[in-house]
């Protein structure tokens, strides 16, 4: 059950990786990486249940917390041309 769900999530990530590589705009890539981060969170939770170690769920939560740092840095760079 969890294995099937994990496989489907990975296949969904394949579509997003195609968008990340193909582009064409930089915002498509940023959005794609954001979605990959979300997929990572779900995948980590599923892996926790596959390995019967549900405390992986905490790790997935912390991943969700730190996911947006790169996006914020990128958006600030696009808006102001720097990170200052």
């Amino acid at each position: 059950m969890f294995n099937i769900a994990a496989t489907v999530i990975v296949l969904a990530a394949a579509l997003v990786i195609y968008r990340a590589i193909k582009g064409p705009r930089i915002y498509d890539r940023v959005l794609a990486v954001n979605v990959i981060g979300t997929k990572t969170v779900v995948l980590l939770a599923l892996i926790g249940y596959i390995y019967e170690r549900p405390h992986f769920l905490d790790i997935a939560l912390v991943y969700a917390i730190i996911n947006f740092i790169a996006t914020i840095a990128f958006l600030k760079y696009r808006q102001t041309g720097g990170l200052d």
Partner: peptide
Amino acid sequence: LSTVILLSAYSLIMAV
């Protein structure tokens, strides 16, 4: 800039 973003995706997959 795209390279940096793709490397970020690389790191996320590597984490999995």
